[in-house]
């Protein structure tokens, strides 16, 4: 399945050619979970990868759906 990923913070810098306005399409196995997507993108937990879909933060074990618009950002603590 395919999901559209937008990367925030400095995550985009890790992917040469990434255009923030468009985001990028990522192909992952059907039924993949959040942790599978992060592993596929090599975003380590220690780097603080947080995934949100439709305004909700997802747990690592949450399943993603085909065509989902996925925002990934670094963990933040306040501003």
């Amino acid at each position: 399945m395919k999901v559209r990923v937008k990367l925030f913070g400095i995550l985009g810098q890790r992917f040469p050619g990434y255009h923030h306005e468009q985001g990028m399409e990522v192909e992952i196995p059907d039924g993949a979970r959040v942790k599978d997507l992060l592993a596929h993108l090599e975003i380590l937990k220690s780097f603080g990868g947080v995934v949100a879909v439709e305004g909700k933060l997802l747990a690592e074990d949450a399943r993603l759906e085909n065509g989902a618009e996925v925002n990934i950002f670094q963990s933040v603590f306040g501003g």
Binding site: F8, G9, I10, S46, F47, A52, Q74, G79
Partner: peptide
């Protein structure tokens, strides 16, 4: 620390706009 060593130097506290909107 990823927040104080990477994100804040790159985007400042404005980097919060994306996550907080993404959380609704």
């Amino acid at each position: 620390h990823p927040f104080t060593g990477q994100m804040l130097p790159a985007l400042g506290t404005a980097g919060m706009v994306a996550p907080v909107n993404s959380m609704g």
